[in-house]
Nucleic acid binder design. Structure first.
Length: 398
DNA sequence: AACCGCTTCAACCGCCAAGGG
DNA sequence: GCCCTTGGCGGTTGAAGCGGT
């Protein structure tokens, strides 16, 4: 609730840390752990507030921090994840082991953002600033879709954040002895979040790619190569895969999921239908209520926005294994997520070797046919999947 | 050498959510 | 249910560093 008094107290030092202070903090934490951050400074003999100590530790002193220049792979990771997650640096940081959210945030603000802007890409939306880059006849429809997508994305991120929080709690309290499979060697948060994220991305990716392959539905949503209509899409999982990025490592029942997404017709109502013995339905008035799903429903969630009505049901158990394996999953997304959602960054990334390295002004690199655009987006998500799929040791970036 | 402008990044600020009394 | 504390997050700041003139 209220703001913590923190460093307002007189006598507490602010500003850069001295080596002596670092040493004190390091020594104390190594011996006792940090425990209560508020109490730590006194115990460690530091004239700092607990918040300052925590920050110093997490952003600088922690032993598992990699410092120095970001590799090209890391840059790509950041850009891709930023396109997906927005300014959620802590979430992005979980995919970049040994990098802190603060470091990533700084790097984004001082390097990547500028580079994207220079290339004519809006660093916020990851779309070309110039809509002419998209196909001309799809332009107006695409513009109309942007608001859908923004709404969807906003709701998705909220739900995702909530799921992550809840899953963290579950994983912490109930699954200490659960097998972790190829558990990451990094921090607890990295061992949890990426798995969920990975599968969400898989779902996402295979979803739009399948629908694109099948009927052009995803493409249609952008107005590229089709109209706004798309067939009803169904998402069914034979294995447990959370449809939303989540750190779900818990007893979340979810043997099957069915998405029945539809934006066809005048209503453009997309609906994700859940099925199962804990079937429940919930409708919300606004997509921003997406996270408001009930605990009792455990893993079903739904929302109604102006354009999409969505319910997700997850039955069965969310285990680390199931979260990692979406094999056999049968996934269909309709144009709930259109190709346009991914924006323009894919084009950048496909040229990243050149673009990112030389920081050149490639403001015209977005031109291309619809099929190229489709391929670009497909590659874009494949990139993300490959990236988050790879355990840190396998990843080229680490 | 001195000045200036730009960039970088560690650290701080303010807000929020969760938990506990 | 209310209030307070705590930890965490994202946005912002400002000192230090760097390059150009």
């Amino acid at each position: 609730m209220g703001r913590s008094p923190c460093c307002d107290k007189v006598g507490l030092k602010k500003g850069p840390w001295t080596p002596e202070e670092d040493q004190k903090l390091l020594a104390y934490i190594e011996e006792h752990g940090h425990g209560s951050w508020r109490a730590l400074p006194t115990k460690a003999g530091l004239q700092r507030c607990g918040k300052s100590c925590r920050l110093r530790w997490t952003n600088y002193l922690r032993p598992d921090i990699k410092r120095g220049k970001f590799s090209l792979q890391e840059e790509q990771t950041i850009i891709q994840l930023h396109a997906l997650l927005g300014n959620r640096w802590s979430a992005i940081a979980t995919h970049l082991p040994k990098r802190t959210d603060n470091e990533i945030k700084n790097y984004w603000n001082t390097h990547l953002k500028k580079r994207l802007a220079k290339m004519g890409i809006d660093p916020v939306t990851h779309k070309a600033k110039n809509d002419a880059l998209l196909s001309n006849d799809g332009q107006s429809k695409n513009a109309a879709n942007l608001s859908h997508m923004a709404q969807w994305e906003s709701a998705r991120l909220e739900a995702e954040a909530r799921l992550v929080r809840e899953s963290k709690l579950r994983s912490h309290s109930s699954f200490q002895h659960h097998q972790l499979g190829n558990a990451s060697s990094s921090s607890a948060s990295t061992s949890v979040l990426p798995s969920g994220s990975l599968d969400a991305l898989k779902v996402w990716n295979s979803g739009w790619s399948r629908s694109a392959e099948g009927s052009g539905g995803a493409l249609a949503s952008t107005g590229i190569g089709g109209d706004l209509e798309s067939p009803t899409s169904t998402l069914t999982f034979s294995e447990s895969v959370p449809p939303i990025m989540t750190a779900g490592v818990g007893e979340n029942p979810m043997p099957t999921i069915e998405f029945v997404g539809s934006t066809s017709g005048s209503s453009e109502a997309g609906m994700v239908k859940e099925e199962g013995d804990q079937q429940d339905w919930k409708r919300l008035e606004n997509s921003t209520h997406l996270p408001e799903y009930k605990e009792g429903m455990e893993n079903s969630l739904s929302f109604t926005s102006g354009v999409h009505d969505m319910t997700m049901s997850m039955e069965g158990t969310w285990t680390p294994e199931s979260l990692r394996t979406s094999g056999g999953g049968h996934v269909h997304f309709g144009n709930v997520m259109g190709v346009g959602e991914e924006g323009f960054t894919n084009l950048l990334l496909n040229n990243s070797e050149r673009s990112l390295s030389d920081g050149g002004d490639d403001s015209d690199n977005g031109s291309g046919s619809g099929s190229d655009y489709y391929e670009d987006n497909k590659n874009y998500w494949n990139n993300i999947l490959n990236l988050v799929n790879s355990p840190p040791s396998d990843s080229p970036m680490f």
